[in-house]
Design a protein around this nucleic acid. Structure first.
Ligand SMILES: [Mn+2]
Ligand SMILES: [Mn+2]
Ligand SMILES: [Mn+2]
Ligand SMILES: [Mn+2]
Lengths: 218, 218
DNA sequence: AATAATTTTTAGATTAATCTAAAAATATAA
DNA sequence: TTATATTTTTAGATTAATCTAAAAATTATT
């Protein structure tokens, strides 16, 4: 079953909005994430249900069928592999690749994407630390914890981000908070929830907002 | 001015159908090349004229404006660079890349395509021998002559094809008639217009149809 | 449990790209 | 140069994706 650009964006959105397999995603949440209106979402949900990509019960929200989940993961795989390509081979910065990958992920060719995967030597994560599903849709989610939930003196490695906006990513880059960097939590300031962390022998301060969005492997 | 997938295909088609800058392209020719109907073409021509990509006079056919030509060349540049990428980096065969490039050529990013150009070390021709316009739309057309127009004992190098169908390209590959191969014209059979050519010390026969579509640099 | 607030769906339009069938213009031929 | 054939354009529909406004269903609050 072929899928349009638009249908694929809906499937991806539903996947990203699913906390876990069973729980349903709301019409409004989809509308917001796709910058569209609830009425448009309802129309598309009917269509996706007809094509058996989602389970849809009026007024009850939707879940992905196994077929829908497979398709969503295939698009996410493409998105993340293209991001790796752009960063590794074409020297893009990690804050520059998302919008381009949003276009490239809709190129329809399994052969292309599998060859790209091979060319990139089967990367396990994308430039933002997100896992890349393999050709069978399998991937393992590493256990990452936001700095905001870590205790003092914890030592860990920056391994992912929760927020992908160029503004945030550029800030991290500038501050040296890049993937793979080792850090130690020094202290949390009770007043505003900010943190002092040590990085390369230096102590720096990061806001609570940043601490919530920076993921650490311990 | 942004252009849709569809508009871009029309611009590219008009460019390819223009024998030279001045002469107009017919509605029917465009319809045939895009596998659509004349009525649809007329609708689109009005739209492209509004956007100042073409000069359109009712019943008189169309020509590209400088703006339209620039846009067409940009899409052709992208098409051919992606073809090079697929062949050189992802090990695709020359008969496998066209349809994929038809999709990839519509990815909107000058930065991406210029970086890709650099990554590929600024190739001058695509896997079929067609010239790749540079970022300013400049390219030189090498003087290529079909075998069917060559005299006996001419020595030359296979440098392009006039026909891009996978069937034709696969046949050439199998027969050793690949780009860069040196050949000598031995004899034309008057009866059916076929040719005998020498390639790597062997004499082989090719039909008139093949001879018309294989381009040689002498 | 009744009322109010929120969410979701329907009804009815709009826009881009397409189509068929018919009309109009141009080109060709008697 | 009139008649015929061909090409091109218009008229009117259709389909996918979207929208606004209003109705219906669900959820939350008195
Ligand atoms: Mn991304
Ligand atoms: Mn990413
Ligand atoms: Mn091609
Ligand atoms: Mn080519």
């Amino acid at each position: 079953m072929i899928t349009s650009f638009t249908e694929e964006n809906y499937l991806k959105s539903i996947y990203h909005l699913s906390p876990d397999e069973g729980t349903a995603v709301n019409t409004n949440a989809i509308a917001e994430s796709l910058n569209t209106k609830a009425a448009s979402v309802t129309d598309m949900l009917k269509k996706l249900a007809d094509k058996e990509f989602i389970n849809y019960i009026k007024y009850q929200g939707v879940t992905l069928t196994p077929l829908g989940r497979e398709r969503a993961l295939n698009i996410i795989r493409k998105h993340r592999l293209w991001e790796v390509f752009l960063v590794e081979k074409l020297n893009f910065k990690w804050d520059e690749v998302h919008d381009l990958a949003e276009e490239l992920e809709h190129i329809h060719s399994d052969l292309l994407i599998n060859r790209l995967d091979e060319f990139l030597e089967f990367p396990k994560t994308d430039p933002h630390g997100d896992p890349i599903p393999d050709k069978n849709g399998k991937f393992n989610v590493p256990e990452l914890i936001p700095i905001s939930k870590l205790k003092n003196e914890t030592l860990g490695i920056i391994s992912g981000v929760r927020e992908h906006s160029p503004l945030f990513l550029k800030y991290l880059e500038k501050t040296g908070l890049v993937l793979g960097q080792e850090i130690t939590i020094k202290e949390q300031i009770e007043f505003d929830g900010s943190f002092i962390i040590s990085i390369k022998e230096n102590d720096i301060m990061i806001s609570r907002e940043v601490a919530k969005n920076l993921l650490i492997a311990i």
